[in-house]
């Protein structure tokens, strides 16, 4: 039990970062940065899901943004159909997306490596078309709930009506997401995943139900993606299919690798690259097209030079700075 709740130095740093994000960051930010950081928080949660699958099981999901869209769709649908509070919508959207992730996983799990990645890419392509065709509910009638003219309002959580409070809320949700992953890692599923990652044959021989645990992992990625989508819907009040293109799903995975899939810092770096870098380039007045070029070049550079991701590089740098730590680690 002590082991379960033991907080590692990295864990302390993570909690500290979250505390900074919740307590200090919102009051430092103006409206623009609040909006940027809120979307960054939503995507952080989604990236956490995709990075976790990659780091723990070596499974590549190229459909995470599509799953966000599913979660966002469900949250909007519930919001406009019923009077549930935001938390209920969030929980239902995340759960339904988790189930969606399972359904997606069952046939996909026979595949490995590139083929698994490709079948998820096909799912992302399909979801992109579905979102573009049916759009996101905005208070209209019928199952698809789309109306023309301005849409109905989306209810935010009652404790987080203002932009500042909503940013805090999103960061708190992201923290919960990371804790959920960490908890799984320290319990039975984590041990099973470690074994599967090493060798599926060995895992099977050891009596691990490989299908169950792989599906479970997919479900967690779906849960986090769905929650991220619902939170994004709460941030904007509406969603647009342009956010959920298949290419964005590929991009999210690429950034998770670039940031470093093995640590929370990596997910944070990835989310910052995805949302904060373009915002900074925009403020500097860089042409939106050129910032694409800078973004792509940065991505390539990081993939080439940083095998453990940017976070891994940074952490190595820190370790080198403190020789005592190095000695202890050795």
């Amino acid at each position: 039990m002590r082991q379960l709740f033991h907080v590692t130095p990295s864990g302390w740093a993570g909690l500290g970062t979250a505390a900074f994000g919740i307590l200090i960051l919102p009051s430092l930010s103006n409206s623009y940065w609040l909006s940027v950081f809120t979307s960054m928080g939503c995507f952080l949660l989604a990236i956490a899901g995709v990075a976790f699958m990659y780091a723990r099981l070596g499974m590549v999901s190229l459909t995470q943004v599509g799953l966000m869209g599913v979660g966002g769709w469900i949250a909007l649908r519930l919001n406009h159909a019923f009077d549930f509070p935001f938390e209920v919508n969030l929980a239902l959207a995340a759960t339904a997306t988790m189930i969606f992730g399972w359904i997606l996983a069952l046939p996909a799990l026979r595949m490995r490596g590139l083929y698994l990645a490709l079948v998820t890419l096909m799912a992302a392509g399909g979801l992109e078309i579905i979102f573009a065709t049916f759009q996101f509910p905005n208070g209209g009638a019928g199952f698809w709930g789309v109306q023309t003219g301005s849409g109905a309002a989306f209810r935010r959580p009652w404790i987080a009506q203002s932009a500042q409070a909503y940013l805090r809320y999103v960061i708190a949700c992201a923290l919960l997401g990371f804790l959920c992953i960490e908890l799984h890692r320290r319990l039975q599923p984590g041990r099973a995943w470690a074994l599967i990652r090493r060798s599926e044959a060995a895992a099977m021989a050891a009596g691990v139900n490989v299908t169950l645990y792989k599906t479970w992992a997919f479900g967690i990625a779906g849960l986090l993606g769905g929650a991220a989508g619902a939170l994004l819907a709460g941030s904007l009040g509406l969603l647009d299919d342009g956010t959920f293109r298949a290419s964005e799903s590929v991009m999210i995975f690429a950034l998770a690798v670039v940031g470093g899939a093995h640590s929370w810092q990596g997910a944070l770096v990835a989310a910052a690259l995805y949302k904060v870098l373009p915002a900074v380039l925009n403020i500097w007045g860089v042409d939106a097209n050129l910032s694409f070029v800078i973004f792509g070049a940065g991505l390539l550079h990081a993939v080439i030079t940083a095998p453990q991701g940017i976070a891994g590089q940074l952490l190595d740098g820190l370790r080198r700075l403190s020789p005592k730590r190095e000695a202890r680690d050795a």
């Binding site: 590929v250 991009m251 690429a254 694409f292 070029v293 792509g296 991505l299």
Partner: peptide, 8 residues
């Protein structure tokens, strides 16, 4: 996915 960076 690295080739996607190049595509961008």
């Amino acid at each position: 996915v690295a080739t996607l960076g190049f595509a961008l």
